[in-house]
Nucleic acid binder design. Structure first.
Length: 260
DNA sequence: TGAGTATCATCTCTTACCTCA
DNA sequence: TGTGAGGTAAGAGATGATACT
């Protein structure tokens, strides 16, 4: 985002410092600005996003450049170190450097692309990078700018990538938690439904008893209904009949000292 | 002191790419 | 080899907090 970062990993690796004054408000302007004019032959003007080149380099993926003029294609696996090492080898490397320089001048933050011509590149984090990010996330689910910078440098990715990763990770965590909560509520609902069914059944039985005979005659030897010793109300279908209080409905307390 | 504005971090939804069965 | 599903990096817009005028 409109970060306050001063450089990204690639920039550091190449000893190229730069500053960003980008902010969220001017996002679209940024995006426009990120269409890189490499500053040489106009007909060679690449519409590739510099970000992509940086990203690819960081991930040690293939670096592909192409132009209308000479169809330059550098499909090599460059690490940041190897770029420097190969600095003087040939034009392809020079090209790499120029793209990086252009990128550095423009902005370090977003890995934009020219939708029309290139499409979005998917940058997979390595297992090690993911593991380190995961480890950091366990300690803290949010990062302050300094931590973000530090982690980005450590992982050799852009701060923006770290930021996005944490964002997505938080979203995943939240989603999982929601699923867990949902399951819990389902179970809770099932339990309550079950209990409600039992109570309803019991109520029906008690009602049936009440209709048939006086309560005292219906009580079996091992009565499941009794008088509450503390409030002296009868627990059962007939309970509360002579009072304004609602009837108590004890599941199955026996003639004990159980209180309300 | 409250209103308006800018900036920033984060969230949420969505898209696009990649991997794998 | 083609294809669909699932995972995930990243884009875009919304929102809330804070600082400044």
């Amino acid at each position: 985002m409109g970060s306050s970062s001063t450089c990204d990993a690639a920039g550091l690796a190449l000893g190229l410092g730069f500053s960003s004054t980008a902010n969220q408000k001017s996002r679209k302007e940024e995006a426009a600005a990120k269409k890189i004019d490499l500053g040489f032959d106009p007909s060679l003007n690449l519409s590739l996003s510099g970000d992509h080149q940086i990203c690819d380099l960081n991930m040690e993926n293939k670096v592909n450049f192409s132009s209308n003029k000479d169809q330059l294609s550098a499909a090599s696996s460059y690490s940041n170190a190897s770029i420097k090492r190969e600095r003087d080898i040939g034009s392809e490397v020079t090209m790499v450097e120029r793209v990086i320089s252009a990128r550095v001048i423009s902005d370090e933050d977003d890995c934009d692309y020219d939708d029309a011509s290139n499409g979005r590149k998917k940058l997979r984090l390595t297992k090690l990078q993911s593991a380190l990010l995961e480890e950091s996330f366990k300690q803290q689910s949010t990062l302050n700018p300094k931590q973000k910078q530090h982690l980005a440098r450590k992982l050799n990715v852009r701060p923006r990538q770290v930021e996005v990763w944490f964002q997505n990770r938080r979203a995943r965590t939240k989603l999982k938690q929601t699923e867990v909560d949902c399951e819990l509520l389902k179970k809770c609902c099932e339990t309550l439904t079950d209990e409600n069914r039992k109570l309803y059944k019991e109520l029906q039985e008690l009602k049936a008893l009440k209709v048939g005979q006086p309560l005292y005659m219906q009580l079996p030897a091992a009565a499941t209904l009794t008088v509450c010793p503390s409030c002296e109300r009868v627990a059962g279908a007939g309970a509360g009949q002579n009072s304004s209080k609602p009837p108590l409905l004890y599941g199955s307390f026996t003639n004990s000292s159980a209180a309300c």
